[in-house]
Amino acid sequence: MNNLSDIQKWFYKSITHPSGVTHGAAEAGTALAMDKGNIVDVIQPSDKLNAADRLAIYHNAYFLRLYGVLEAEYPALKAALGEDLFRKFALFFLQQNPSGSYSLYDLSANFPGFLAQSVPSENAEESWPNFIIDLVRLERLFQESYRGEGTESLPNTDNPDFDESGDGQVKSNSLRISPSLKLMHSTFPVHHYLLSVRRGEDVPLPNPEMTWLAVNRLNYNVKIYELSEDEFLLLKQISANPEIEISNEAVQPYSAKWLKEKFLY
């Protein structure tokens, strides 16, 4: 009789093996040095299904469920890659990055990083992979902005103090970045593509164009903002170091917008 720990490891390896439960169980049985590691040694058949078919129900469900999560979270990526290629990347990602969290929201946190590492170095300068990677980054930032903390429930979000210090410097305690503000730079207008896909439009892949974006949530709605390079770099600077002192002159062109859109509070 196998112990519970070995049974669970065997079961897990069997239902997550990319080649199916027969391969998975055989590999697991050997790796765990189980005396009785064949499927029929562990799983009872039913009147209508043999032991392997019963185990395969869990194998199929594992990949379908987690693939469904990626599919739902990255509709624009799926549109850009096409269903077949998206499925290949998604399933390979799931094999390489099994969930270690109690939350499915964490499942795809590393999906952008995984895709970035999937680009062969000799293709790193090609535009299409860069578009794909930036698109998946933007989709992830949208999820993070949508689900994370925002300014809606924070106290005193209506009284930021940019210009009243009188010394030509913005006080550090006035520069509170919204927790839902995300910034990204892309060589493509990936936001237009993402929004078109989400509207159900069939759009071609865009041409390269330097793009600086902010993603932020305001009153529970996520908005994507096109920024100038200067504005983007300033926000980056502030978000990297909230204690930094920046001149009023630098902030002044943007302060009204930042307050209105709650980039800062």
Partner: peptide
């Protein structure tokens, strides 16, 4: 059919716009 629906609520596309 496959077991158990995904129990994660998926975000609504209406919640994202271009400013």
């Amino acid at each position: 059919a496959h077991p158990h629906p995904v129990v994660m609520d998926i975000v609504n596309t209406e919640n994202i716009t271009l400013a």
